[in-house]
């Protein structure tokens, strides 16, 4: 009975869909089944997973955080500037992650202390963080800091900061066997967040806030603190994504990750999270992110043009969800039939 429940869960459907997708893409294009290439291609979407996984927490609590894509750039340029200033690159990495945490905390405080919709707040911070990231090199230049490059500190703003140490580049270049480090890291991150969401009081509070914030208040949930932490995780995840991209691009740039917003949100909602709060799982987001990522990579490998990929991905997204809803309706119908027939039987 319990197994049947697992089989009927959305996560299982996603898992089946992922296997089916890999199977079909592999059959159509045997090149795609080259395991090394397949795993290497995860590098092109792990940053989306890094940001989408913790965003799930925020969305479960009926929030939203669209500022993550700017936090990526902010974390990246911070890492670069701190490293240029002569700090060890891994210490710079820690500072970049701290910036992500602070950015998340800023969002969290603003959201939890006011009744302003989080979409508007994080739209504001989306602009603000992007602006800060763009302007930071110029600002430091004005403040009189010296640069080592030829064109001065301000040039970092458009040329990026390069020459990062090999040990740092190895974070994304390296792999355990044929599994790239970032993919391992994302799986570990998912595990931690999953435990946090499903095995702790914090996780249950998130669902409660999402389902019924009033009930949460009356049952003594420290709403503000819980919310701040949710946004902090989101900021931290975005900063991780920014750091990962910095290593992958071998350069720190203020504008990286800017186009990831819609893929991130798509992964979360396809993963089963309700944008109005109260439902969603980390596993769902992880699977959905992988489905979308491999689909894109698989279609690209087939030589499908970018325009057509957008159409195909959009259509499949709708079809998958429509199928889910149809099944749901059919299930309800069957339940009712069963109830009726059992009554008639008596």
């Amino acid at each position: 009975m319990k197994w049947a429940r697992y089989l009927r869960s959305w996560e299982f459907a996603l898992f089946a869909l992922l296997l089916l997708e890999l199977g079909v893409l592999g059959l159509v294009n045997p090149v795609f089944f080259n395991l090394e290439n397949l795993l290497y291609s995860t590098l092109d979407f792990t940053h989306i997973l890094f940001a989408a996984l913790p965003l799930t927490l925020v969305i479960i609590a009926a929030g939203i955080d669209i500022s993550g894509v700017s936090v990526m750039g902010l974390a990246s340029i911070t890492l670069g500037l701190v490293w240029v200033a002569g700090v060890n690159v891994f210490a710079a990495l820690a500072v970049a992650l701290l910036v992500g945490v602070l950015a998340g905390a800023f969002n969290g405080f603003f959201v939890s202390r006011t009744d302003v919709n989080p979409l508007v707040i994080t739209l504001g911070t989306l602009f603000m963080f992007a602006g800060l990231a763009q302007g930071m090199p110029a600002l430091l230049d004005k403040l009189g800091f010296k640069a080592y490059g030829s064109a001065g500190l301000a040039a970092y703003q458009y040329e990026g900061i390069t020459g990062l140490p090999d040990a740092f580049i190895a974070l994304t270049e390296g792999s355990l066997g044929i599994v790239p480090y970032p993919f391992l890291a994302v799986l570990f991150f998912a595990l931690v967040l999953s435990l946090l969401l499903h095995k702790t009081r914090f996780g249950r509070y998130l669902y409660l806030i999402g389902v019924n914030p009033k009930a949460a208040v009356y049952s003594g949930v420290p709403i503000r603190r819980v919310l701040v932490w949710a946004y902090v995780f989101s900021g931290f995840g975005a900063a991780l994504a920014g750091v990962m991209l910095t290593s992958y691009f071998t350069s720190a740039r203020a504008d990286l990750g800017g186009d990831a917003l819609l893929p991130i949100i798509t992964a979360v909602v396809l993963g089963g999270a309700d944008i109005l709060g109260g439902s969603g799982t980390i596993l769902g987001t992880l699977l959905a992110g992988m489905i979308l990522g491999f689909l894109r990579q698989g279609l690209l490998a087939l030589g499908v043009t970018n325009d057509l990929i957008q159409v195909v991905v959009g259509s499949l997204l709708i079809l998958a969800m429509a199928a889910k809803q149809l099944l749901h309706v059919y299930g309800e119908y069957r339940l009712k039939r069963k109830a009726l027939s059992s009554r008639d039987g008596r």
Binding site: N34, H47, G160, T250, A260
Partner: peptide
């Protein structure tokens, strides 16, 4: 990241040469 996706894919597909207008002077290095 979009450009990198394309480079990787063309490489995997066995293209002989790639000509690219780079968005970032160093971002594509790896």
């Amino acid at each position: 990241s979009g450009q990198i996706e394309y480079i990787n894919n063309f490489v995997n597909q066995g293209y002989d040469a790639i000509a690219i207008s780079a968005l970032s002077p160093d971002g594509l290095n790896q």
